[in-house]
Amino acid sequence: FGLDSSYEAAVIEMGMSHQGEISRMSMSCQPDVAAITNIGISHIENLGTQENILKAKLEILDGAAYDAPLILCRDDKLLAGVQLHSDRKVYYYSVSKKDCDVYASGVKTVDNSITFTINYEGGKIAAQINCLGEHNVKNALAAFCVGLALDIPPEDIVKGIAQFKPEGLRQNVTVIDGVTYIVDCYNAAPDSMKASLSVLSQAQAEGKRICVLGDMLELGKNSKTYHRNVGEYVAASKADLLYCFGEDSKCYIEGAEKKGFAKENCRHFESRDDLAAALKEVVAKGDAVLFKGSRGMKLEEVFNALTK
């Protein structure tokens, strides 16, 4: 990682697709603080159930000291029920539950940022994130808990949170020729799809809101059902057009139409080139466009073709 003695701390993401993988990484990293943000269904094809995903993520404690704090999101039903057989300090955070160690209140969207108050045992403090989506408020609360666990002054924590900006292919919001693009092509699962659709709904747009969705991969035998469910999310969002690419993405349209999304506002494409060509005909100044799909769908190529 290029880490040497000049660094005081490192934030390490421990991803996995099978049991045992996070355990090995935790034993290598020996974390001083551990955080789990949610239990979704990514890689459920390999792990079978969400309960097994929870077990795999709790492997983060395998290399941690017995007194290393654990940070959990209480808004996640599986994390809310975690029982630890130790005296380890657990920090719970939430966007709504006031009986947590840290919770948010007064959440407001202002332009392309969100302001809110962080409530904690020592008091409350104003905070701002320069991105959209309730999930990013949760991420900020998780970061705040990490800061508390490391005895960082709350004033310094919120200053750091305010400096965050999405980069690369993770919900990167950029404005080109008056069009707001949300490029979120690093990964995809139902929970992250729902989160990205909330960002599209909150984004400033004088014109249309267009969601461009690719397949969610590695979801196993219930993949089509999960895709239909996401289509229902689309219908419940502020999206005006639904453009899809990938075999299972046809199920997005089925789910959206089931919930009343206009059939004429849905299109499926067999190639990225055809999708890009169609978008060039409809995207106009003032629109907001979301690109969301699994890494293997390479929707960033469609974005690049549209904006070059």
Rank of each mutant, 00 (worst) to 15 (best):
V183D: 06
K221S: 15
H135Q: 12
E21A: 04
H227Q: 06
C251N: 12
I60D: 05
V302N: 05
I182P: 08
A104P: 01
N229R: 09
N38V: 07
S249K: 08
K308W: 06
F164N: 10
E254Q: 12
Q171D: 13
S192G: 01
Y91V: 10
T225P: 00
A195E: 07
S113F: 00
D287E: 03
K250R: 14
S5Q: 11
E8F: 03
Q30K: 15
K258S: 13
A189K: 01
E257F: 01
F245P: 05
E232R: 15
S28F: 13
A205D: 01
S23H: 01
N187I: 03
N187V: 01
V33M: 12
A127D: 02
E8M: 02
G106F: 00
L275S: 06
E264W: 02
G160M: 07
D4M: 06
A64L: 12
I71S: 13
R24W: 03
D32S: 15
G160P: 11
V90K: 04
L200H: 07
D248G: 01
G160I: 08
E301H: 10
M27S: 02
K308M: 13
Y7V: 05
D191C: 00
G231P: 02
R228C: 11
T174V: 15
S294L: 08
A162W: 04
G168P: 10
K292Y: 12
R228G: 01
S192V: 04
A35I: 15
A143T: 14
G220V: 11
D87L: 12
P190S: 03
D215L: 08
A262N: 13
I118E: 08
G231M: 02
V183A: 09
G231C: 04
V107M: 05
M216D: 06
C29P: 04
Q202V: 04
D87F: 11
A288G: 01
A35E: 10
Y103Q: 05
C244P: 00
Q128I: 06
K124S: 15
K258T: 08
D32T: 14
G40C: 03
E155T: 13
A142K: 15
V183Y: 07
V146W: 12
D240T: 06
T174H: 05
D274R: 03
G122Q: 13
C145K: 10
N187S: 11
N172E: 09
R88I: 07
I152C: 08
L279D: 07
T109S: 08
Y103K: 09
K308I: 12
K138Q: 14
K55M: 12
I253D: 02
I157V: 14
L213N: 10
E254R: 04
A34S: 15
E13M: 13
E247P: 00
Y66T: 14
C211L: 06
L290M: 08
G207Y: 05
N112W: 01
I12S: 09
T109V: 15
G296W: 04
D151M: 10
L72Y: 07
D75I: 09
G63K: 06
N304F: 14
S198M: 07
R24E: 10
L197F: 02
L217K: 10
E301K: 09
Y186D: 11
A126H: 09
